[in-house]
Design a protein around this nucleic acid. Sequence first.
DNA 1: CAAACAGTTTAGCCTTGGCTAACAATATTG
DNA 2: CAATATTGTTAGCCAAGGCTAAACTGTTTG
Lengths: 159, 159
Amino acid sequence: MTDFNPNASLPAPSIPGDALPPVEQHAQQYATVRNAHETELIEDYVELIGDLLAHRGEARAADIANRMAVSQATVSKMIRRLNELELVTSKPYRSLFLTEAGQKMAETSRARHDIVLHFLRALGVRDATARIDAEGMEHHVSDETLAIMQRFTEQQQKS
Amino acid sequence: MTDFNPNASLPAPSIPGDALPPVEQHAQQYATVRNAHETELIEDYVELIGDLLAHRGEARAADIANRMAVSQATVSKMIRRLNELELVTSKPYRSLFLTEAGQKMAETSRARHDIVLHFLRALGVRDATARIDAEGMEHHVSDETLAIMQRFTEQQQKS
DNA sequence: CAAACAGTTTAGCCTTGGCTAACAATATTG
DNA sequence: CAATATTGTTAGCCAAGGCTAAACTGTTTG
Ligand SMILES: [Mn+2]
Ligand SMILES: [Mn+2]
Ligand SMILES: [Mn+2]
Ligand SMILES: [Mn+2]
């Protein structure tokens, strides 16, 4: 308390909206987001490599660069990281492949991504918009919410 | 095409899930996410400062550090950035305040955040989970989806 | 009113994820 | 099969967003 504040301890002015959450809970919100940001790019790479392998039979660095709209140098550097994390195997000038761990991550990410995408479409969001939103949202959806989204989509499809 | 691929041009194996989107559309997805990531931390700071001002009458760097679970040094550096962006005004060792532009951003972010949070609760997500998910999702929800979320929540409340 | 405490800033370090430019390897094609 | 085009790598740059340690300022209290 440094600045003079005329309303410091009055009954309660016209506070709009919800109150602030308790400090620990609030901190948890931000920490969870920071955490998601550490892994989401990795997940997107692995998921994309999995998709390219499934749909095209091979995953080349140039395809990734084009699909992500990023320079080839950026992809090359990222592949080195994925290698160090033992998520992909790569021989220079050859297609990438996923390790066991990489395949597992790709499947999990793809499943999560699809649930979010299908949910948004079931909600009534146009396909192109749903795809864009899902690409970002997928990394910030808890398992609890994911389960609810899936149920919602199934309900929707029955009717 | 470098690696030998026995299925290269066969009818179409057992491709699971959706096909890959066209390259340009796919690239747009990732680009939009990268874009959101550039502004989201700024938005969270401004939104939090606005909330602290509204609910506490002042916004101190130490409060922000506690609520974000981040070091005071990190906050201090960020405040310099917010100052350069002319979103906040600050005098050394005094409470922060929002500029006009800062207030506008705070309101927009808060409104968006609330719509997402209330939507998740309306869907049936538990409050604590909804708060965590909303903190991340809010930055990746298009205006189109936001409008649909808002309508959904209102419908829910009528019934 | 001096000392202790709490809050703030600065300096310097690190990792991530972008970029461009230059170079190297492979693939395609006249 | 040589020239060209495509693809991949490396080096070196940058900004953002974390951190710790140390210095400084303002507030509270003995
Ligand atoms: Mn994805
Ligand atoms: Mn994604
Ligand atoms: Mn947020
Ligand atoms: Mn927010």
